[in-house]
Amino acid sequence: MPGQDLRVGIIGVGVMGGDHADRLARRIGGARLVAVADPDEARARALAARHDGVRAVADPLALVADEEVDAVIVASPGFVHEEQVLACIAHSKPTLCEKPLTMDSASSLRVVEAERDAGRPLVQVGFMRRFDPQYAELRQLLASGRLGRTLLLHNTHRNKSVPNADFRSEMIVRDSLVHEVDVARFMFGEEIVAIQVLSPAPTSHALDGVVDPQVAVFTMAGGGLVTNEVFVNCQVGYEVRCEAVAERGSAIAGRPQTGLYATSVGESAGAPGSWGGAVDPDYTVRFGLAYDREVQAWVDAARRGEVVGATSWDGFAATAVCTAGMQSLATGERVAVDLADREVVLGVGARAAQPIP
């Protein structure tokens, strides 16, 4: 649709959906928000009222079918993603689906197959770290071969806290660690074949019975290893970084300064954690630019009839790893990832994960 704005609808108006609404209204070119939908109709109406020309739609599937909506951002809870993304595919609507693609590998594979049967790429999964300048630069450095073969990755993922009382141990794997899964696949350019989730002594700030922090170890198809710390109640702030270790050097994405890096809790109640400067309070600050770049790239690609960034296959592969990860969380054992054959599902010569252009 060259020459026209992409008319976008958003399903889900929580923190992420609201953030995307503001992004489309203020910072994205070639698109305009036209409709929002959420089970909390009052919240949807309130969001719509903040933006000119935006309608609140009661039924998310009605928003998908609306002829005045060209493309859809799915920012609803993961347990409704399958139904909503399948509806987008059935109506040939380009879709940006926030992670996880779905809640388990079987339903994610159904989405991949539906998109394949539709005959055109439609689904991008919201792994925004691929669009973060440092992460993209690190991927390009590793892909260039300048450092030799990549041997190890070390991922750190810390949140100050999670206010949701339902955020259990399994959600740390499925909703938080899933980002590290995509980072590992993106940096190595290959699949994860096994995962082991280890359970250190939990922080006193975690809810009873919740394993936090968690340490996960991925084994890559080429033999590389990835260590991952996910700590969702660290009390300091939002820290996300990735260190790659290769044969002839190493590099870190996400480190805000050089020299010794140490964090501490703020001196007074409500004060941000610090390292000598403020630690980002949450993901909307740390990855604000990445989200902007992701949505702009999605809009531009949708207008061309293409998909960039993480595909539905990437979403399926990440979900398959997390499905195995939840088994490992329960047993402490290393679990092989049950991944469908890409060429069988998508056809011979199916495109592998690619770096951001």
Rank of each mutant, 00 (worst) to 15 (best):
L142S: 00
P94A: 04
R116N: 13
P94N: 04
S144G: 02
V74L: 12
K93R: 09
S161Q: 13
L153V: 03
V112I: 03
A106K: 08
R129D: 07
L101F: 04
R149F: 06
Q124T: 15
T102Q: 07
L152W: 14
E137D: 09
V111H: 10
P100E: 14
S105G: 11
G148V: 06
D117N: 11
K93D: 05
L147G: 01
P133Q: 04
G126R: 07
L153S: 03
K93P: 06
E83Q: 15
L122D: 09
C97K: 05
C97N: 10
N164I: 08
S107L: 12
N155G: 09
F127S: 02
R158Y: 09
E83A: 15
R139S: 06
S105N: 09
L151G: 10
H81C: 05
L153Y: 01
V162C: 11
A87H: 03
L101Q: 07
T156P: 02
L151K: 13
H81I: 02
S76I: 01
F131T: 01
A90I: 05
S76P: 04
R139Q: 08
S105W: 02
V123N: 09
T156Q: 13
E82A: 15
K99R: 06
A136P: 04
L122F: 09
Q140C: 07
E98L: 10
P133T: 07
L109R: 01
N155V: 08
G126P: 03
K160L: 11
R139D: 02
P94G: 05
A75S: 13
V162E: 14
S144Y: 00
